[in-house]
């Protein structure tokens, strides 16, 4: 990793097209502990550029922690996580410029309109003023919020807030879109509409999408590749078809795959700790 002189890296700050074959995300033996809780316990991941990659696991599996390590939010030592070849420990700002991130909770600013919410992120990602209006509108269009753009976000439904957040993440033209449980707490129709937007944008732009979920059916339907995560480790990786074919009887649902590799079911949360429950609840509570 060549270190550059600060202030003189305009030309290299956004390596949008890395050398062919550079993975969008590469994690090697990623570990992270909160005190004595080892939330992520040595995971290896390689996310191919241009794919939709699903990280599946029950509550408390460590999905959010892994995402927070990839998005530069948690301090990890060098050599553990790379984003398009940029080490997150060393090239924080460069990595952030490549990322669009939608956290697990609904996080649009309810006191602003949809358009203002998106424009804020355009400013924070240095979208030049000339292009700002156009790009904000394009992002809102891409998620189907053109009509509602000038209403306050507090009047939005849960599904609309999720799509607004998608627009916020898209306005900076990220190469890698990271979505933490994008459909949690949404009704089936809103879930489908969020996924349709993700697929459309990926189809139109070829960006890489890294998504966590605990809905097996979604992962099956929309992801090119899946890793099953359980108690901080990855138990199996492959395309949905490969994983299902790897079952002893040769077929089944992803649900069966999960049970096979973890000896556990998804319905029984392995970690019903208060903070998990609270996070889910507060997500649900904001969906009015």
């Amino acid at each position: 990793m060549t270190d550059q002189i600060p202030g003189r890296r305009e030309s290299t700050a956004v390596p949008t097209t890395g050398p062919a074959g550079v993975p969008a995300i590469a994690c090697t033996a990623l570990v992270y502990s909160f005190g004595s809780t080892r939330a992520v316990d040595g995971i290896d991941l390689e996310v191919e550029a241009g794919s939709i990659y699903g990280l599946l696991g029950p509550n408390g599996a460590g999905k959010t922690t892994a995402i927070r390590a990839i998005t530069t939010l948690l301090p990890v030592p060098p050599g553990m996580v790379g984003v398009f070849g940029n080490d997150v420990a060393k090239r924080r700002m460069e990595v952030r410029r490549l990322l669009g991130y939608v956290p697990q909770q609904l996080s649009a600013d309810s006191g602003l309109t949809g358009r203002e919410n998106v424009a804020m992120f355009a400013r924070l990602f240095d979208v030049p003023r000339r292009q700002r209006g156009e790009r904000v509108t394009a992002a809102l269009d891409a998620v189907g919020l053109r009509e509602a753009a000038d209403r306050l976000a507090k009047t939005y439904s849960g599904g609309m807030v999720r799509r607004l957040e998608l627009a916020q993440a898209l306005v900076s033209s990220p190469r890698l879109l990271i979505l933490d449980e994008p459909t949690i707490g949404l009704d089936p129709i809103a879930r489908d509409s969020v996924w349709e937007r993700i697929e459309e944008v990926r189809g139109a732009t070829g960006m890489t999408v890294f998504v966590t979920t605990h809905y097996m059916d979604e992962a099956d339907q929309y992801c090119d590749r899946i890793s099953l995560m359980h108690r901080g480790t990855i138990r199996a990786t492959g395309s949905p078809q490969e994983l299902k074919a790897s079952l002893p009887k040769g077929s089944g649902t992803l649900e069966d795959v999960f049970r096979h590799y973890t000896g556990d079911t998804l319905e029984e949360p392995t970690s019903g700790e208060f903070r998990n429950v609270r996070a889910t609840r507060s997500t649900a509570a904001r969906l009015r």
Binding site: R97, R135, S172, V201
Partner: peptide, 14 residues
């Protein structure tokens, strides 16, 4: 095509 043109060019001058 929604999003077309959106992601083709990232912001030019960070």
């Amino acid at each position: 095509a929604p999003g077309r043109g959106l992601v083709d060019q990232p912001p030019t001058a960070p």
